[in-house]
């Protein structure tokens, strides 16, 4: 039988899904064990139990100086920046993408400009942002916006252009104005794609967030990781990394579920 025709049964599929996670965990546990037997005070690969203890301590015990549980404050600060950045990107991207996709005038005016802008490496602009917007929240949010907006604009304008010409003509024969065509024909058709684009942008958004926090912040997940790096506190770093991964995964999952629920007619590609 050909390999392409071998399909796993349900239990096997679940087993195969879980397997890589288990393998990575086992590999880590073995590596950590080897190092810790050689040197009990090794800091590079803390034992899984140590990481668990650290995680419990971080999430339940307050900071010695301020009494605040920094873990949750970090999470809240980072999520706020991320949500603000992605939110602004998505709204601007939607409006500009629709304009480029629907209006030939806007296309001539903006499409090439956006294409060129999207080639600028956003991290290279970070120093400028810090200089212009200061070290506060604004520069971090702006970095996320600059980093994700060109992609969202290009993706959405492309999707808008791909809305079948027939539908636009049909809407015109039903007497729709440009505004109504935007609102009732193009917008609903690119909304699933917007969610898709946001999902794809979450990766870069986290990257920019952590980079900005690493350089200048006083709270935030990225800030904390780079802070405790000085003490080689691998248990804290790993806890934060796992937490960030879980957060990112949950966001992605939520967005996908939302898209399925809100746009049942767009079944393919979600």
């Amino acid at each position: 039988m050909r390999a392409i025709n071998i399909k796993p049964s349900r239990p096997l599929a679940v087993f195969l899904t879980v397997l890589p996670f288990v393998l990575v965990f086992i590999a880590y546990a073995i590596g950590s064990d080897i190092r810790l037997t050689a040197n009990p005070s090794d800091k590079l690969l803390p034992a899984p139990s140590t990481i668990w203890d650290t995680a419990v301590r971080l999430t339940t015990e307050g900071d010695r100086r301020s009494g605040r549980i920094l873990f949750w404050h970090d999470t809240w600060a980072s999520l706020k920046r991320l949500a603000l950045g992605i939110g602004i990107s998505a709204s601007l991207g939607l409006v500009i993408g629709l304009m480029i996709g629907l209006l030939p005038l806007a296309r001539s005016f903006l499409a090439q400009f956006v294409a060129v802008l999207s080639m600028i490496p956003p991290l290279a602009l970070l120093p400028i942002l810090f200089i212009v917007f200061g070290l506060g929240e604004l520069s971090k949010v702006v970095l996320i916006v600059i980093g994700t907006l060109p992609f969202i604009i290009r993706d959405l304008s492309q999707r808008t252009i791909e809305v079948p010409q027939e539908l636009l003509v049909k809407a015109q024969t039903l007497g729709a104005s440009s505004w109504v065509i935007t609102l009732r024909v193009a917008l609903p058709q690119v909304m699933p794609r917007l969610i898709q684009a946001v999902r794809l942008s979450l990766g870069p958004a986290w990257l920019f967030l952590i980079a900005a926090e690493a350089i200048a912040a006083d709270l935030g997940l990225g800030y904390r990781i780079f802070l405790v790096r000085r003490y080689l506190a691998m248990d804290v770093i790993l806890t934060y990394v796992i937490w960030i991964t879980i957060l990112a995964f949950l966001m992605d999952w939520t967005l996908r579920a939302m898209s399925r629920k809100l746009f049942p007619w767009a079944e393919e590609g979600l």
């Binding site: 079948p164 027939e166 539908l167 003509v169 049909k170 809407a171 039903l174 007497g175 729709a176 104005s177 505004w179 109504v180 609102l183 009732r184 024909v185 609903p188 058709q189 746009f263 007619w265 767009a266």
Partner: peptide, 27 residues
């Protein structure tokens, strides 16, 4: 047209209603 003549994001009834409503200011 041969294809793409109805709006995929509207239900069948909404599609027919759209035949009259798209000419309105808010569609």
């Amino acid at each position: 047209f041969q294809r793409y003549s109805v709006f995929p994001h509207m239900t069948v009834r909404e599609n027919v209603v759209a035949g009259e409503s798209l000419r309105r200011p808010w569609g």
